[in-house]
């Protein structure tokens, strides 16, 4: 089986699994969880394009995620745009904002770049909560964000919305896979591995960095919009730095730099959050402990660890 066939097979399998789960007897609370897994999987797959492929540690992706949520809320509720047009605008908005931030912040590298993105994200959080009330609803947020209606089919229930998110997830996963394997993706990976050599080969590294950061922002915008629709709500809390931290943890937990690692990481993170929060209010601390253990014993994340075990098991 070639890599391409395997990719399509696994993507269709994940999407089909979501469809089966949506149509069969999964409980209502699990449907919300599964929806969240797919929404954050979209976020993490996009985040990994910047982090895992290009080596850009962003702590401000929550801003692109939040912009997507607010764009969908405003464009559907106030401007009465069709859901799909607003969803696309949310992605484009995330991408444009990421390109603008990247255009400035990517003059820096490493921890300095991470700190600038963190500061930018927190600035957006404060703006959304206190200074842009007319557009964001202030700390109360915007409620009543709609679900899509497509070809007469209303995706109002969590069960049907799972189908919708599964399709969006499958499309964006395949796009990410294609992008990573493309000549553009190879140059971006080369920039992570050796930027000096890439420049010496005639490529301007900053252009590629800004471009991949914008694509990553597009994914964040789409994910933020889907989450607002899922929860019928957009609030400034999703722009706080912890959202950027969460997507970073998901990516590293699953396996940064791999296509499916962020998907696995998003699923593991959301499942753990769901299970641990039933046991204790201090679930975030326990989640942190799991994260530390995984990074110590499986530096390549769950995918890396699983791959090692498989190689050992082979005769």
């Amino acid at each position: 089986m070639t890599g391409r066939t395997r990719l399509i097979a696994v993507t269709l399998l994940v999407a089909a699994l979501a469809v089966v789960l949506a149509l069969t007897g999964v409980g209502a609370e699990r449907l919300l969880l599964l929806n969240l897994v797919l929404v954050y999987a979209v976020f993490a797959v996009g985040y990994d394009l910047a982090f895992g492929v290009a080596g850009l540690l962003s702590l401000g992706h929550a801003a692109f995620f939040g912009l997507g949520a607010y764009l969908l809320a405003n464009l559907t509720l106030r401007a009465h745009w069709p859901f799909e047009a607003a969803l696309l605008a949310a992605g484009i908005g995330g991408g444009v904002l990421a390109a603008a931030v990247g255009g400035v912040a990517l003059r820096l590298t490493g921890i300095f770049f991470a700190l600038v993105t963190l500061a930018f994200g927190q600035l957006c959080f404060i703006l959304a909560g206190n200074h842009l009330r007319a557009w964001t609803g202030g700390l109360d947020g915007i409620s009543g964000v709609p679900r899509p209606v497509l070809f007469g089919l209303d995706f109002a229930s969590d069960r049907l919305f799972l189908l919708y998110t599964a399709v969006v997830f499958a499309i964006l996963l395949l796009v990410a896979a294609r992008l990573r394997a493309s000549p553009f993706g190879q140059v971006v990976a080369g920039i992570r591995l050796n930027p000096v050599r890439i420049e010496q080969l005639g490529w301007r590294t900053n252009r590629f960095r800004v471009a991949i950061f914008a694509v990553s922002g597009f994914y964040a915008g789409i994910a933020g919009a889907l989450q607002a629709s899922l929860l019928f709500f957009a609030s400034p809390q999703i722009i706080e730095w912890t959202t950027s931290g969460d997507v970073l943890i998901m990516t590293v937990l699953g396996g940064a730099g791999t296509l499916f690692g962020p998907v696995v990481g998003a699923a593991a993170f959301e499942l753990l959050r769901d299970e641990l929060s039933r046991l204790t209010d201090r679930w975030y601390g326990l989640l942190g402990l799991v994260f530390v253990l995984v990074t110590i014993f499986a530096p390549g994340g769950i995918m890396g660890g699983a791959g090692r075990l498989l190689r050992r098991a082979r005769p």
């Binding site: 394997a181 000549p183 190879q186 080969l201 005639g202």
Partner: peptide, 13 residues
């Protein structure tokens, strides 16, 4: 490097 502009984005390298 020398043929990058002629390589479509949607094809694998």
């Amino acid at each position: 490097a020398s043929v990058f502009r002629r390589q479509p984005l949607w094809r694998s390298a």
